[in-house]
Amino acid sequence: MSILNKKQIQYIIFGIIAILLPILTQAKGSTITLLASIGITAIATLGFNVLLGFSGQISLGHGAFMGLGAYISAYFVSQMELPFFLSLALAAIIPFLVGFILGLIALRLEGHYLAIATLGFAVVIEEIFAEFSGFTGGWSGTKTTYPIIFGYKFDKLSVYILIIIILVILMILTYNFMKSATGRALVAMKKSEHAAQAMGVSLFKYKLLAFSISTMYAGIAGSLYIHFFRFAEPKLWGITLSLDLLAAAVIGGLGTIGGAVVGVAFLKVLPTVLQMLPVFGDFDGLAFVLTGVSIVVFVMFYPRGLINIPNDLYNKFFKRKRTEAEEVKA
């Protein structure tokens, strides 16, 4: 029991289930695509949650950072013929550095400047993606292949497995540092900037750290995206994608690790479900509206997010009974 209570073990079990599910059910290609897309977006959302859920900052440029990771990865694998893992590493490091520089400028001030600076970044980089066709293939997009590692050629299913493995590793790493000094500093900063400062937390340093880490995750997600879908075009990486990440983080549960996965799964499955219902199937944009409504509703009424529903229900119905029983005994 106690080992199952360890979050790290829970994440690994989640990973094993996520890998076995499509294998055992012999899932269709489209199901694997859906699951992989959940896994990829969950990685970016996990990063977004480090930023928003733990440090209380908003970015509208995370879609752009994902795009950056995707193009970098595709460029180094296809044009420079670098090994996949090296390209993946570059797709993590370069967005990290770009995020670091942008953060250096936008995070010195209190408040909303990061949101505005990243809004601008998103718009500008979309233009750059479109114009730098040597690097990105311009409006017509760029293509790449499934990864090849030590001569082993990945196929759709094995890329999906790779995505889940990386997701689980990142979940564990994130959990580890969130439960140590770094994480406590971030939480302190979000809840009380004064207390954090008085305890020696440099707000600038930790906001910058959270932002850079989150852009790195976005870069990794972008790299995995392009090596799963093997195609990318500039319009994929706009504000809409960033808003999706925001929505997933909020709906899943801010400041939680599992919330990133739950939130993304909710958002990705929602349109599919809507399409199956005959009444709603005809309306384009309905999923969008519902996502927007969900953001507002969750922020206002249940900021703890979907991930905490089981726990809260349990506490509501069982814990109380137990304490009542204890009171009776006393």
Binding site: F177, S180, A181, A185, A188, K191, M199, V201
Partner: peptide, 26 residues
């Protein structure tokens, strides 16, 4: 920090004493 346990709140007070990097902690 209301959402954290009391001992975690104390550990925030020790923030300046921690020497390992985020990477080491991860």
């Amino acid at each position: 920090i209301n959402d954290l346990s009391i001992i975690d709140n104390l550990l925030i007070g020790a923030h300046s004493q921690f020497k390992t990097s985020t990477l080491q902690q991860a």
